[in-house]
């Protein structure tokens, strides 16, 4: 038996590519959720009302300190106990989204803290409400500088999607395992999956570096 069978690798490619669609789908939806909910968490954490900010801090720290895999199990096995039934893929996307929303919230927090105090004071001098100040003044300035950091977590999330295989979502890792168990050849499918993630991360990292350079140039160019 030869070590690497090109012909076999070629044959399983369409199967794997079909599963890549699920991986990408879960990442896109999961990250959309994380990006939006992360901002909500960051804003709640900055609330002047301790009954909003303190539970938010506790939630963020708790979710960040415990494994995503167990959180996915929690959503998948525990929520049905309370009558919330959902397909595995939904539990998986929700798990990814919740977990990464806590990371995103820290990124947004840094962005929000980076907006100078004077911007707030100018908004007060124009008698703008807190909501309006966040919406028109602070958030538009807080987000562009943190886009690269969010990008890093997007790459981080796609690499965590194989965890969905643990609740039988047929994303690319699960597909590779299925192929392996049916053909008794694991090397090609798992290596191809690894290569897929490697290519995606390297390309994404290049994109992030470009964005960073562009942002830096935009800032420098403005002076």
């Amino acid at each position: 038996m030869n070590i690497w069978d090109w012909e076999f690798a070629w044959r399983i490619m369409p199967l794997l590519l079909d599963a890549v669609v699920i991986t990408v789908y879960a990442t896109v939806l999961g990250f959309a959720f994380a990006a939006v909910f992360g901002l909500v968490l960051a804003l709640m954490r900055r609330s002047h009302r301790p009954w909003i900010s303190l539970p938010t801090v506790a939630f963020v720290e708790f979710v960040r300190s415990t494994p995503l895999l167990v959180q996915i199990y929690f959503l998948y096995f525990v929520l049905p106990e309370f009558g919330v039934l959902m397909p595995a893929i939904v539990a998986g996307i929700l798990g990814l989204g919740l977990h990464f929303s806590t990371y995103c919230s820290e990124v947004y927090r840094a962005g929000l803290d980076g907006v100078p105090r004077g911007q707030w004071e100018a908004a007060v001098s124009l008698n703008m409400s807190r909501y309006r100040t966040y919406r028109d003044i602070v958030i538009p300035q807080a987000i562009p500088p943190v886009v690269p950091a969010l990008g890093n977590y997007l790459v981080g999330m796609i690499k965590e999607t194989p965890l969905l295989s643990s609740i039988a979502v047929v994303e690319v890792m699960q597909q590779a395992k299925i192929i392996g168990s049916e053909t008794f050849r694991y090397i090609e499918p798992i290596t191809l999956v690894g290569a897929f993630f490697l290519v995606v991360s390297l390309v994404a990292m290049m994109g992030i570096r470009r964005t960073e350079a562009w942002l830096r140039q935009k800032v420098l160019g403005s002076h």
Binding site: K159, E160, T161, P162, L163, S165, M173, A176, K177, G180, Y186, I187, I190, T191, V193, G194, A195, F197, L198, S201, L202
Partner: peptide
Amino acid sequence: FRGTSALVQLFWMFYV
């Protein structure tokens, strides 16, 4: 090792 997923690495070493 940063570019491929941790679970993929684990499975690779376990199965391959």
